[in-house]
Simulated scan of single mutants.
Amino acid sequence: MRKLWIGILITVGLVLGGCSFVEEANNTVSYVNEATSYLNEVNDFVNEVPAIASEAVNDPQTLTELESKLIDMKNEIQSFSEVQAPEITADLHQQILDYSQQAEEGIDLYLTHIEEGKFDPSILEDAELFQTLEEITTIVDEIKQLGL
């Protein structure tokens, strides 16, 4: 009887351990999908905003569009900062969050300039904002290379 209970306990332990592994794998796949979606949003922003900013100097409607793009990117950054990363990607995730924080601060600066009527597209040309966002894409690529 004692051997039966030991066998049952070992089996239960193996099953529960296996469930944990499957859950971690699912969490990792979900995280990679979220990070990829975030990367796509960042890439779109980096590719679209400079041209919009150049047009925004002479066109109030385009300036409104730029402001909207900046707000949308800020919201994306805030949403991604709430994503829980699996242990395997924790360090890379923290790097993304650090760069995202820097990018959000840059976005806040540009929004302030727009609100104060001081918008100048040259502030975007040498912007750390775009360099910071490009760093995010590099890190997300590293996550993808983990084979997850």
Score class of each variant (00 low, 15 high):
His113Thr: 15
Thr112His: 14
Asp72Arg: 09
Val83Tyr: 00
Ile71Ser: 09
Glu65Arg: 06
Ile96Ala: 00
Met73Ser: 06
Leu109Cys: 09
Leu111Phe: 00
Val83Phe: 00
Ile77Lys: 09
Phe80His: 09
Glu67Thr: 07
Pro60Thr: 08
Gln94Val: 10
Asn58Cys: 14
Glu82Arg: 11
Ile88Asn: 02
Thr64Gly: 12
Glu82Ala: 09
Glu65Tyr: 08
Leu111Trp: 00
Ser68Glu: 08
His113Ala: 06
Glu76Thr: 10
Leu109Trp: 14
Gly106Trp: 00
Ser81Cys: 05
Glu87Cys: 06
Leu92Arg: 04
Thr64Pro: 09
Thr64Trp: 11
Val57Phe: 08
Val83Asn: 00
Ala103Gln: 00
Gln61Leu: 06
Thr89Gly: 14
Met73Leu: 12
Glu115Gln: 03
Ile96Ser: 00
His93Glu: 01
Ile71Phe: 13
Glu115Leu: 01
Leu111Pro: 04
Ser68Asp: 12
Ile107Lys: 00
Gly106His: 05
Asp108Tyr: 13
Gln94Asn: 10
Asp59Cys: 13
His113Lys: 10
Ile88His: 02
Glu105His: 15
Glu82Thr: 11
Glu87Gly: 08
Asp59Asn: 09
Ala103Ser: 01
Ser68Cys: 14
Met73Gly: 10
Leu109Phe: 04
Leu63Arg: 14
Asp91Met: 06
Val57Arg: 13
Glu104Lys: 08
Lys118Val: 13
Ile77Trp: 07
Ser100Asp: 02
Gly117Val: 05
Ser79Asp: 13
Leu70Glu: 07
Glu105Pro: 10
Phe80Asp: 06
Met73Glu: 11
Gln78Pro: 05
Ser68Ala: 08
Lys74Thr: 02
Ile77Val: 03
Pro60Val: 13
Leu92Tyr: 15
Ser100Tyr: 15
Asn75Leu: 12
Glu76Ile: 01
Ile96Phe: 05
Leu70Cys: 13
Ile114Asp: 02
Glu67Met: 06
Thr89Leu: 04
Ala103Lys: 01
Ala85Met: 08
Lys118Ile: 11
Asp98Asn: 04
Gly117Glu: 09
Glu116Thr: 05
Thr62Gly: 11
Gln84Phe: 11
Asn58Thr: 06
Tyr99Leu: 02
Gln84Asp: 13
Lys118Gly: 10
Asp108Gln: 04
Phe80Met: 00
Lys74Ala: 01
Glu87Arg: 08
Glu65Trp: 15
Ala103Phe: 00
Gln61Gly: 15
Asn58Gln: 12
Ala90Asn: 05
Glu82Val: 13
Ala85Asn: 05
Ile88Asp: 03
Leu111Gln: 03
Glu104Gly: 04
Leu97Gly: 05
Thr112Lys: 02
Asn75Gly: 09
Pro60Ser: 11
Asp91His: 11
Glu65Pro: 10
Ile88Met: 07
Leu97Val: 08
Ile88Glu: 04
Gln61Asn: 07
Asp108Phe: 09
Val57Pro: 13
Asp108Ala: 07
Tyr110Glu: 06
His93Pro: 03
Tyr99Val: 02
Gln84Cys: 05
Ile88Arg: 03
Thr112Glu: 01
Ile114Ser: 15
Gln94Tyr: 04
